[in-house]
């Protein structure tokens, strides 16, 4: 599913980090743990093909990212990768439903209303579909962020500190949700976190 080998990244200040090799089979999850500032997010963006100038090799579902053109990379990322960010990012001029529609439309050009409603239902967003994203509460925004990472049934979901702003109850809920959704879509989860509460939920762990 996801394999990396000899992956390293050179920062502009000259500092270079080398990342451990990973090898995930389809449906297998992985937790990447480590303290802040060790380069977890960099690792994630490298695997998602969002950082140029990577050294080493990343391949997802048999596609080697290094070999793709920029344009192919954009398309591949849109289709096969789901990203859940630490800070939430939405299109503020669109309402909740339109944000979800937009994610479905690019690049697969789908408009699967059933999928949208089911996901919104499961994430407790059904009543808020026509609200502006800025009118959502923190928890709702977090859940919308998760929905945007899942709605297009990606093969791999990269989640960057998905529980950092949540209390214990919601933290457990979000982890369950991610696992369930990954199960349904047969996706792999790759979560980077320094949140100790998350660790007990995943066997497969790598420390940076």
């Amino acid at each position: 599913m996801v394999t990396t080998s000899n992956l390293s990244y050179a920062y502009q200040n000259g500092k270079e980090i080398t990342f451990p090799d990973i090898d995930l089979t389809p449906g297998e999850h992985l937790l990447v743990i480590g303290p802040s500032g060790v380069g977890k997010t960099t690792f994630l963006y490298l695997m998602a093909g969002l950082l140029p100038s990577l050294k080493g090799k990343v391949s997802i579902s048999g596609t080697t990212l290094n070999s793709l053109t920029r344009r192919q990379m954009d398309r591949f990322r849109g289709e096969h990768i789901g990203l859940i960010f630490q800070q939430y990012h939405f299109i503020k001029s669109l309402n909740v439903a339109d944000n979800l529609k937009l994610r479905q439309h690019f690049p697969k050009n789908s408009n699967d209303k059933t999928r949208r409603n089911q996901l919104a239902d499961r994430l407790g967003l059904s009543e808020h579909l026509h609200k502006k994203v800025t009118a959502l509460s923190q928890g709702q925004q977090q859940r919308l962020g998760i929905a945007l990472g899942l709605i297009h049934r990606p093969q791999i979901i990269f989640a960057d500190e998905p529980t950092s702003n949540l209390d214990d109850v919601n933290c457990a809920k979000v982890i369950d949700l991610l696992k369930e959704e990954a199960e349904i879509c047969k996706s792999s989860l790759l979560i980077i976190t320094h949140d100790l509460r998350v660790m007990s939920h995943f066997k497969n762990q790598v420390t940076l």
Binding site: D74, I81, L83, H89, I91, F106
Partner: peptide, 13 residues
């Protein structure tokens, strides 16, 4: 800028 970057992760060129 952030929204544009987000759209890039959605696969927009």
């Amino acid at each position: 800028k952030q929204e544009l970057a987000l759209l890039r992760t959605y696969g927009l060129r």
